[in-house]
Design a protein around this nucleic acid. Structure first.
Length: 592
RNA sequence: GCGCUCGUAGCUCAGCUGGAUAGAGCAUCAGACUUCGAAUCUGAGGGUCGGGAGUUCGAAUCUCUCCGAGCGCGCCA
């Protein structure tokens, strides 16, 4: 499959070796080889690559691991990619490759350019990634932006690895909260008409951001709405407020370079010709997954107005949940969960069998029931993976930034992006596992030092470009497009033999594997960490040139060697640019 | 009480879904600039991977059980 991937190539060589052993009767025919892996050992003393083949096969083959390892090693010694084979430890087969193998990997990286690392592991399978889905009741605040960035990067990563990705936003435009929004906006409408409104009453949204909504309503309706009963004006005001809030949210997302393919309205589920929610419940009821019944009261915190009554329940316990879940409130309207089931059914109807939802940590308790619902709706054929993003602690030089939600004072996403820039926000949000709490220090992120990974990685890319600029100055007759794959692949990277150079090539060769693993695990942070390591190794090689001038990239009196090293630098630049692009971060040509 | 997530160097965190002697950054200490950009680099010290048991050739990683932190626990979304 991925011809880019030197690991896949080597794995094939191991399989080939095993085939010979099967032919020779050393291994039984049809032995399970699926658990064989090849990977770079942690310790460089163990060679450049190691495989567990002998240890994995030993049991089924009825042989001692070491003995089998010797047999496999014997076969591998004949391989043209492999320079040295050792058997070590409990039966590891350690390999040292011919330098040509690494140089080949480097050539591949440069030749493939922006496509290097791309793969088809997704086999064009449609995947729906739903993220952000913030309530349209106000501008986006910092809490939202981690999920936004995570979802966007994950979607890019899946796209890069051959999935057909749909980026989707679920608008929670039904329910009590948007009615509160409408009442809050109505107050601002009266204010816009010149009426003194005093303090915003408890229970309404106090933020100033609703003033433009009030003004827009006044411009559109004059004072016509004022005399109407709430039942008349509320739908109008609500629609206007939701529209304007969604426009603001889209703007905020655009500031982070985040766009969506689909905005799906919750309200549209049961305001159209068919009530999709009712229809879904009926469908599930017919299958026996919805019934009328009673729930025991929760064991934990006592509920004041607990009322033991018969209600409409989804049999989520049949699909791994702890308790069956209510679909209707006591007033007869649907619960949020009921609408969410109908919504996920829509995703399935649109042909998705792989669903990914990105939720805040406070929704963790909701995962099992939603997965149960997807299982029930799809006859257990579709899979819902819910990625939970932990909260972000906003700091300034180590001190928490205080926000008062009650007074409507929160730090908006826009404020943070304006202060530290889109790249810093995006990279930092991804420089941590999604389920770990993240400290985001506004002061540190502006710092230009090794302590700031955004800067550190971008600086690596800028430095690479700087080498190219200087090379052009030293060798004025270099073709203008000398960093293009065509010209570079004509250069002679065989001269790259220093351990630091080889090590950098190995790191570059690792990229497709990192991309693939990140994609399968749904963990874009691995890309961020990899880029940090790649940049680090590049900075180290750079500085080596201070004490050892013969290791500099540009050697005045050796054009051939210089060109070879430019290939290496281009390999670094290519991968840095590619990885940063996956994360949605700029790869600058200079940092000034 | 139950469920989910987490617990790794003084601090902030990785650890490639089970691999060999557990790694980075910060902080501390000692070094490298008439430089292809020192906004960088090199080295040193620092660990019972929360505790215990199990699974197997092999466990930070999987299972169980304690301890500790965060989140959630009909009719909020």
């Amino acid at each position: 499959m991925a011809a880019d991937d030197i690991f896949a190539q080597l794995l094939d060589r191991v399989f080939a070796a095993n085939e010979k052993l099967i032919a020779a009767g050393v291994l039984p025919a049809g032995i399970d080889q699926s658990r064989i892996s090849i990977e770079p050992p942690r310790d460089a003393a163990h060679g450049e690559m190691a495989t567990n083949a002998a240890m994995v096969l030993a049991k089924e083959a009825g042989k001692k691991p070491r003995e089998l390892a010797d047999a496999i090693a014997q076969q591998l010694r004949a391989d043209d990619l492999i320079d040295k084979v050792d058997v070590a430890g409990p039966g590891f087969i350690n390999l040292v490759l011919k330098p040509a193998a690494w140089i080949d990997a480097l050539r591949t990286a440069v030749r493939r350019g922006a496509h290097y690392g791309r793969s088809d592991i997704g086999k064009s399978e449609p995947v729906n990634v739903e993220y952000v889905s913030a309530n349209p009741t106000g501008p986006m605040h910092v809490g939202h932006c981690r999920g936004a960035v995570f979802g966007d990067a994950l979607a890019s990563l899946l796209d890069f690895t051959g999935f057909k990705v749909t980026r989707e936003y679920y608008i929670n435009d039904a329910g009590a909260q948007v009615d509160v929004l409408a009442r809050s906006a109505f107050l601002r409408y009266r204010e816009a008409l010149g009426e003194p409104i005093g303090d915003i009453p408890e229970g309404l949204y106090p933020g100033d951001y609703l003033k433009p909504v009030g003004a827009a309503l006044a411009a559109e309706y004059g004072d016509k709405l004022k005399a109407q009963p709430e039942a008349d004006w509320l739908p109008l005001v609500r629609a206007k407020a939701i529209d304007m809030m969604m426009a603001a949210i889209r703007d905020d997302l655009a500031a982070l370079n985040i766009t969506f393919d689909v905005f799906f309205s919750e309200r549209s589920l049961n305001t159209g010709e068919i009530d999709r929610v009712a229809e879904t419940i009926a469908w599930l009821r017919q299958r026996g997954d919805v019934y009328e019944g009673r729930l025991p009261p929760p064991k934990g915190a006592p509920i004041e107005d607990w009322e033991d009554r018969e209600q409409t329940l989804f049999r989520s316990t049949a699909f791994g949940d702890d308790i069956d879940r209510a679909l209707k409130k006591s007033d007869g309207s649907y619960t949020y969960f009921a609408a969410d089931i109908a919504y996920h059914r829509s995703k399935l109807e649109r042909g998705f069998r792989t669903l990914i939802d990105i939720w805040g940590a406070d929704h963790g308790g909701y995962i099992k029931r939603m997965q149960a619902a997807v299982a029930a709706l799809s006859d257990r054929k579709a899979v819902l993976d819910v990625k939970v993003v932990q909260l972000v602690k906003l700091l300034r030089a180590g001190e928490p930034v205080k926000m008062s939600k009650r007074a409507g004072e929160f730090v908006t996403l826009r404020e943070v992006v304006d202060e530290v820039g889109r790249d810093a926000v995006r990279f930092m949000m991804l420089f941590r596992k999604n389920d770990a709490v993240l400290d985001f220090d506004l002061a540190k992120v502006l710092e230009q030092s090794r302590d700031n990974p955004v800067f550190y990685v971008q600086y690596g890319h800028a430095r690479a470009q700087s080498v190219f600029r200087n090379a052009r100055a030293v060798f004025p007759d270099l073709p203008a497009d000398f960093t293009s794959p065509r010209v570079l692949s004509a250069a002679n990277p065989e001269q790259l033999s220093d351990p630091a150079e080889l090590s950098l090539m190995r790191r570059i060769a690792l990229y497709p594997r990192i991309v693939e693993a990140s994609s399968i695990a749904h963990e874009p942070h691995r890309i961020a960490f990899y880029l940090y390591e790649l940049a680090s190794e590049f900075h180290a090689l750079w500085t080596l040139g201070n004490a050892s001038p013969h290791l500099r990239f540009i050697i005045q009196d050796d054009r051939q060697l210089t060109e070879a090293r430019l290939v290496l630098v281009q390999g670094v630049a290519t991968v840095l640019a590619s990885g940063l692009k996956l994360l949605g971060v700029e790869a600058p040509n200079e940092m000034r």
